[in-house]
Computed example of a mutant assay.
Amino acid sequence: MAAGTDATAFPWPPGVATGVGSLPGDDPAEAMRIVIGELPDFPHLVELPAAGVGADMIGRGAAHLAELHVEYAPSGWRFTQRPGGDERRARALLRRDLDVLEEFTQGFRGPLKIQCAGPWTLAATIELRYGDKALADSGAVRDIADALAEGIAEVTRDVSRRVPGARLVVQLDEPLLPAVRAGTVPTASGFAMLPAIDEQVVRERLGVVLTRIADTDAVPVVHCCAAGVPIDTLVAAGARAIGLDVTLLAPADDDSLGAAVEKGVRFFFGIVPSTEADDLPTVAESAAPLRRLWNRLGFPAEELARHVVTPACGLAGASVAWVRRAYRRCVDVGRSILEAPEGW
Rank of each mutant, 00 (worst) to 15 (best):
M1D: 13
A7T: 15
T8D: 15
P11Q: 01
W12M: 00
G15D: 09
V20Q: 01
G21A: 05
P24Q: 00
D26I: 10
I34V: 14
V35I: 12
E38L: 06
D56F: 00
M57Y: 04
A66W: 06
E71M: 08
A73F: 10
S75W: 12
F79S: 11
R82D: 11
R89F: 06
R89N: 12
R91E: 12
R95S: 14
R96Q: 14
E103G: 08
T105Y: 04
K113Y: 01
C116L: 05
A117T: 15
L122I: 15
A123W: 01
L128I: 09
R129M: 12
L135S: 10
A136E: 07
D137E: 13
D146A: 14
A147D: 08
E150W: 05
A153V: 10
A153N: 04
V155C: 06
R157N: 10
R157V: 08
D158W: 11
G165Q: 11
V169C: 04
P186F: 02
P186M: 03
A192Y: 14
M193Y: 13
P195K: 04
V201Q: 14
R205C: 06
D215Y: 06
T216K: 11
P220F: 01
C224H: 01
C225K: 01
A227E: 15
P230D: 03
T233Q: 13
L234K: 03
V235G: 09
A236F: 07
A237L: 10
A237D: 12
A239N: 06
A239D: 03
A241P: 09
G243P: 03
V261I: 15
E262M: 06
K263V: 11
R266T: 06
F268R: 08
S274K: 00
S274Y: 04
D278H: 11
V283I: 15
A284P: 04
A284R: 15
A287F: 11
A288H: 10
A288N: 12
R296W: 10
E303M: 14
R306H: 15
H307A: 09
V309Q: 01
V309P: 02
A321D: 15
C330L: 03
D332K: 07
V333T: 04
R335T: 15
I337K: 02
